[in-house]
Design a protein around this nucleic acid. Structure first.
Length: 281
DNA sequence: GCCCAAGATCCTATTACCTCA
DNA sequence: GTTGAGGTAATAGGATCTTGG
């Protein structure tokens, strides 16, 4: 039996990790969302019409829809011809930082409230928002509390950070993806180490097996000359305590070697994670 | 109660922008 | 000034669930 056999039969090397936002928690959040949406009109900055999500992505994203979606910010949208101006993009690059000028920030945010159709109509490239440190810190803090957002939380964050709810949503999606990717990398490293440990363990066991075989041949005649053949062939050694044990439930002078009496009949593998010290008898 | 369409959100993969060495 | 790599916002598509007809 080789190492591959051991891995295939005795170890689950999957790296999947269940994320907490799955399952019923997710559904509860959706339920909350539905309840909240019923009263969207009561929220200060919400408007009637399609969600910001669809206003940004569906085929019907026209300027009039954008104005419905973003309400009082429609003027910013309609005035975003400046957005297609490369100079405004350059300006944005310069203002990112701790003490970002508030007016420029507001302009930047307003410019970011542009529908895809606006990009297409004006042939301008997709603009990329850069969060400033304060926005980033707030989002991070919120993410630490809960990796998913209720619509209410999303709206509140968006208002607090002067971002679109859709941007907050996207940020959380990407943040979850990054977290999962990091965790996958960690798991991968862990599995590599596991593989190395098992390889070493396998080598060690193979070596011990060879030693035991030679020992059995050399010692069988003088030590077990009077013993039945079956007792001799079941001679085993515990890989951890390295005591020689007789097979068949402790035959002969098995009183001192009984703890390892089952090794001869059953595979005896050690999980390096559950038994870091290769386990003891 | 069952079926179906619509709506919302999620995840995953990918694209595209931006910064930096 | 150019370029390639890396980070990340944004987009697209599919899956899942709830809700209402």
């Amino acid at each position: 039996m080789g190492f591959d056999d051991i891995c295939n039969t005795g170890l689950g090397l999957g790296i999947y990790r269940q994320l907490p936002q799955n399952g019923h928690i997710h559904q509860q959040q959706k339920m909350k969302k539905k309840q909240i949406l019923k009263y969207d009109h009561l929220l200060p900055s919400l408007t009637l019409g399609p969600s910001e999500d669809h206003a940004m992505t569906s085929a019907s994203k026209a300027d009039d829809i954008a104005s419905k979606v973003y309400g009082d910010q429609a003027s910013s949208i309609s005035a975003l011809s400046s957005f297609s101006n490369s100079s405004s993009v350059k300006k944005e690059r310069e203002v990112i930082g701790d003490e970002e000028d508030q007016e420029l920030e507001l302009e930047r945010v307003s410019n970011s409230r542009v529908s895809d159709e606006d990009y297409e109509d004006q042939g301008s490239p997709r603009k990329k928002l850069r969060l400033n440190k304060a926005q980033f810190a707030t989002l991070e803090d919120s993410f630490k509390e809960h990796s998913t957002l209720t619509p209410k939380q999303k709206q509140a964050l968006a208002e607090k950070l002067n971002l679109r709810p859709r941007q907050v949503e996207v940020w959380f999606q990407n943040r979850r993806a990054r977290t999962k990717l990091k965790q996958t990398e960690v798991d991968c490293e862990l599995l590599k180490k596991c593989c190395e440990t098992l390889t070493e363990e396998n080598k060690r066991l193979q070596k011990e097996l060879q030693e035991l075989k030679s020992l059995k041949v050399a010692a069988a005649a003088p030590l077990y000359m009077d013993m039945p053949a079956g007792a001799v062939t079941s001679l085993t050694m515990c890989p951890s305590c390295e005591r020689i044990c007789g097979g068949g439930g402790g035959g002969g002078d098995g009183s001192s070697t009984v703890p390892f009496s089952t090794l001869g009949s059953k595979p005896h593998f050690f999980n390096p994670f559950t038994h870091p010290s290769a386990a003891s008898c």
